[in-house]
Simulated scan of single mutants.
Amino acid sequence: MMSRNSIVSSIYTAVLRYSRRKGEQPMTHRLGIVTIGQAPRSDIMPAIGEILGITDYVHTGVLDDVPPADILALAPSSGEDVLTSRLRDGSSVLLSRERLLPLLQKELTRLENDGCEFIWLLCTGTFPEIVTTRSLLIEPDSLIAGILAKINRGQYTLGVLVPLAEQIPGISSKFTGISRVVYDCLSPYEAYTDNDVSNVAAYFRDENCQLVLLDCMGYPPALKKRLMADTGLPVVLSNEFTASLLAKMLTV
């Protein structure tokens, strides 16, 4: 004889399946997605939205309401950590991590006050200073690096692709759990050629990499596909990887 809990579970499953057949959305928790540039991120959000499988999310940018002159004032000076992102018009921008911090914290607080249960920082940069009090903050930098460090107990060679060479000193510390890490650069926010991609693939092959990480939220699925084909290696696309994890948490 089925227990009461088993009966309730069976009824719930049947109702859920019926609602999905009727075209209703699965149960979700409210999600905020914040880019350090400007929203909407039309270059990556369609693919991310498809993976998430939900429509109840808020997408904002730290620079959404910042005047152009003030954006220029956020450019990094010597010795400051360099970030790069995309503006609404499709152009790219260089940002000082240190100068961006107050604006980022302000936007996180606003999303939290708006009722977001989860907030996804759409950036792989490192921001140990930012906090939330109620919302669960998803930071891809520590999330992805932490998981990769558990593969083979970190004893392998990881190839990391970043937009700019200037970013390498500021991010190398997050991969200390991996025995050998090599870096190459290709910006998703600037035009690149097939030859540029071939050179990246050749470098990672020559360095005997066993896994490749595309360490920027702006890299497109097409680049992952091309690098997998050219290197024969598994490739982690940061935005896809994070979205897949969130999808498992946010939907039934």
Rank of each mutant, 00 (worst) to 15 (best):
residue 121 L to Q: 02
residue 249 M to K: 12
residue 2 M to V: 14
residue 250 L to V: 02
residue 165 A to D: 14
residue 116 C to Y: 07
residue 91 S to F: 02
residue 182 V to L: 07
residue 195 N to A: 13
residue 226 R to M: 09
residue 95 L to R: 01
residue 115 G to N: 03
residue 201 A to P: 10
residue 20 R to Q: 14
residue 139 E to F: 05
residue 161 L to T: 09
residue 145 A to L: 03
residue 244 S to W: 00
residue 155 Q to W: 11
residue 209 C to M: 03
residue 97 R to V: 00
residue 188 P to V: 08
residue 17 R to F: 03
residue 108 L to V: 01
residue 33 I to R: 08
residue 49 G to H: 08
residue 171 I to D: 08
residue 193 T to S: 15
residue 169 P to G: 10
residue 54 I to E: 00
residue 237 L to H: 00
residue 102 P to G: 05
residue 207 E to W: 05
residue 12 Y to Q: 15
residue 164 L to T: 01
residue 202 A to C: 09
residue 178 I to C: 01
residue 62 V to M: 01
residue 137 L to I: 03
residue 114 D to L: 10
residue 248 K to G: 03
residue 2 M to L: 15
residue 87 L to I: 08
residue 157 T to K: 09
residue 6 S to M: 13
residue 10 S to R: 13
residue 137 L to N: 05
residue 121 L to S: 08
residue 71 I to F: 00
residue 42 S to G: 09
residue 247 A to V: 07
residue 248 K to I: 10
residue 115 G to L: 11
residue 34 V to Y: 02
residue 191 A to H: 13
residue 93 V to Q: 06
residue 238 S to Q: 10
residue 5 N to C: 05
residue 69 A to L: 07
residue 24 E to F: 14
residue 42 S to K: 06
residue 184 D to R: 15
residue 16 L to C: 10
residue 149 A to P: 05
residue 126 T to K: 08
residue 160 V to E: 02
residue 210 Q to K: 14
residue 204 F to R: 05
residue 42 S to E: 11
residue 249 M to R: 13
residue 78 S to P: 07
residue 170 G to K: 08
residue 85 S to L: 00
residue 149 A to F: 03
residue 147 I to D: 14
residue 123 C to Q: 02
residue 229 A to W: 01
residue 125 G to A: 08
residue 107 E to A: 10
residue 153 R to M: 07
residue 204 F to P: 09
residue 239 N to I: 11
residue 201 A to S: 11
residue 184 D to P: 09
residue 18 Y to S: 12
residue 220 P to V: 07
residue 138 I to G: 11
residue 50 E to L: 03
residue 111 L to A: 02
residue 85 S to D: 12
residue 224 K to S: 01
residue 252 V to Q: 12
residue 115 G to H: 00
residue 64 D to M: 03
residue 96 S to C: 09
residue 149 A to G: 13
residue 222 A to Q: 15
residue 147 I to W: 12
residue 105 Q to G: 07
residue 90 G to W: 05
residue 191 A to W: 04
residue 226 R to H: 01
residue 154 G to S: 04
residue 20 R to A: 07
residue 149 A to T: 13
residue 231 T to Y: 11
residue 147 I to E: 15
residue 173 S to Q: 12
residue 235 V to T: 08
residue 177 G to K: 04
residue 251 T to H: 02
residue 9 S to A: 15
residue 163 P to L: 05
residue 69 A to E: 15
residue 176 T to N: 12
residue 40 P to S: 07
residue 57 Y to P: 10
residue 88 R to V: 02
residue 252 V to T: 15
residue 167 Q to A: 02
residue 42 S to F: 03
residue 67 P to Y: 01
residue 225 K to F: 09
residue 34 V to A: 04
residue 3 S to C: 04
residue 104 L to I: 06
residue 55 T to S: 13
residue 233 L to R: 04
residue 249 M to A: 13
residue 238 S to F: 10
residue 128 P to G: 09
residue 126 T to H: 13
residue 25 Q to C: 08
residue 230 D to K: 14
residue 27 M to P: 01
residue 246 L to W: 05
residue 34 V to Q: 04
residue 95 L to D: 09
